Simulated assay, not measured.
Amino acid sequence: MTLNLVDSHCHLDFEDFGSDFDAVLARAKESGVARMLTICTRVTKFEQVLKIAEASDNIRCTVGIHPHEAENEPDVDVARLAELAKHPKVVGIGEAGLDYFYDKSPRQRQQEVFATHIEASRVTGLPIVVHSRDADEDTVRLLQDGAKKGGLTGVIHCFTSTQYLADAALEMGFYISLSGIVTFKSAAALRDVAKTIPHDRLLVETDSPYLAPIPMRGKRNEPAFVTHTAGFVADFLGMPLADLAAKTTANFDRLFTKAAA
């Protein structure tokens, strides 16, 4: 069976892939992962992210600042993000958002940077890739503020949050992406929420090099492993893996329209 999966969120610029990058891409292809979206976490590293996307027809990228980096990265305004996003390989804004679990940047600064990215998403028409951990209420508030102005689309990536965030995101037209965490034994509550996600709003991802799914847990994650997450999700949703692959790929192209062009 030949799959046509998309790893909708990976970090191919990270040093973890420095020694065997070509082999990582080859294994992805062999596993039926046709395309990858490599995610920017620091605008100061954007050129490295872009270089990876430019090196392969199967890779696209985003531009943005992760909440962990909000304090340390230089100020980037909406105009600058929009300018960088004009590149043909850039199909989304982010990842950006709020992380109140680690609090690596002050919460007020996280919110300011997130709001800038939300506006950049609206201005460019490109979807925002949202990171949210232990920050459901503020995430929803800021996204709703942007959505009221119109033209906001996006995905809650590596979803591990509550039904409240899922429902609010879906209400705004957002998509929700599941990572290897959904395969963990401890993730029963997450699976309950996942079952409520409409199939036409569902994506799958690795968030590699982190969060390898069962049965690869404990190893460095890589795009090829999204097949394990997709297979697990297909099983608990009661559909063939090929159908889940087709649905999530179609969803990716519907959201990231620039990637499908």
Score class of each variant (00 low, 15 high):
T124P: 10
G125P: 11
E137H: 13
T124L: 05
L126M: 00
V130H: 01
A115D: 13
V91R: 00
D138V: 08
T124R: 00
D136E: 13
L98C: 11
R109A: 13
E112L: 09
A120S: 13
Q111W: 07
G92K: 00
E119Y: 05
G125K: 01
A96R: 00
A135H: 04
K104L: 15
P106A: 10
Y100E: 05
V129D: 09
G94P: 14
Y102E: 14
D103N: 15
I128M: 11
L126A: 02
K104D: 13
A115H: 03
V140S: 09
T139L: 04
H131Y: 06
V130K: 02
A96C: 15
V140G: 08
L126Q: 09
L126G: 02
S121M: 12
D103V: 14
R107Y: 03
D138G: 03
D138L: 06
K104I: 09
L126V: 03
K89P: 11
P127S: 03
T124V: 06
V129E: 07
D136N: 11
T139K: 01
V123M: 08
G92C: 01
A135S: 13
P127A: 02
G92S: 13
G94F: 06
E112H: 06
Y102S: 13
S121Y: 02
A115M: 07
R122Y: 13
S132I: 03
